[in-house]
């Protein structure tokens, strides 16, 4: 499907990515999962690797991500996407393999699988969508839920004394030797979204260069389960999540010196 230019002199400068299917997403209005999908698809388009990319979907709201990417896809068990991606990548070392996981999947039930994928320096790219809540099951507390944040399983607000404090996975994984690239970005405004896209590109380039495990954590909104309008949800990321999950580069490989042999 191509959108026709209104005038012959106008040329499309931004259009629907080829690496997205034309299946409308199941995400709620204003949910930034859609932005994460779009950015990944744009990067795959720009790198020209759609036919050489294999995605691994997880369980949670991202369970249907396989429907939306126009690449080969696997659908993994809850938390096991890094293990499944390990098998896919070892069987296809010349392909780009990425997982797309939420915080319940990656930081809770899949904590062991993500940690050891990083420990092995598994040459995969992980897109970690952190919205501080279990979205698909209706808004329960996640390991990344903020202190005091009300969820359906922490109705009085998350109490650190009994449920712990938010788990910062990027900080945890960045100190693993096998991790080559670990950064945290946010999807709460246009500037941050642009930065997130650059990080997604870099994370896939790291894999293409065979440098090891790469992960981009994306702070993301869940308007429905946070009980906020879409714009207020973006403000919640900026005002409440970013202070707990600081944005930045936690681990970045050295840039090859200009003119140095590859």
């Amino acid at each position: 499907m191509t959108i026709q230019a209104p005038e012959p002199l106008l040329t499309p400068v931004y259009q629907y990515p080829e690496s997205l299917t034309h299946v409308p997403t199941h995400y709620c209005p204003g949910c930034t999962h859609g932005i994460a999908h779009r950015l990944i698809a744009e990067v795959i388009d720009e790198m020209g690797v759609r036919q050489d990319t294999i995605g691994v979907a997880s369980v949670g709201c991202s369970v249907f991500s396989y429907r939306y990417f126009a690449t080969d896809f696997a659908q993994a068990a809850h938390g096991r996407a890094p293990a499944m991606a390990t098998g896919v990548k070892r069987a296809n070392p010349d392909k780009l393999v990425f997982t797309y996981q939420g915080d319940g999947d990656l930081a809770s039930i899949g904590a062991a699988e993500i940690l050891h994928a990083a420990v092995r320096g598994e040459n995969i790219t992980v897109f970690f969508v952190n919205n501080a809540i279990y979205g698909m099951t209706g808004g329960q507390m996640a390991p990344t839920t903020l202190e005091g944040q009300k969820t359906t399983s922490s109705p009085a607000g998350r109490d650190a004394a009994t449920t712990g404090a938010p788990l910062r996975m990027s900080e945890l994984l960045a100190q693993v030797d096998g991790a080559a690239y670990v950064v945290r970005r946010s999807l709460h405004d246009v500037v941050q979204i642009r930065r997130a896209k650059k990080a997604i590109r870099r994370a896939l380039e790291v894999q293409r260069q065979g440098l090891g495990f790469a992960m981009v954590e994306l702070l993301s909104s869940c308007p429905t389960n946070w009980g906020l309008a879409p714009d207020a949800a973006l403000a919640f990321i900026r005002d409440e999540m970013v202070p707990v999950f600081p944005l930045g580069d936690l681990k970045v490989p050295d840039e090859p010196a200009a003119g140095a042999p590859a």
Partner: peptide, 13 residues
Amino acid sequence: VAAINMVYGAAAA
């Protein structure tokens, strides 16, 4: 748990 899911991935490939 991880081993069988790695098998799942390689088998899927």
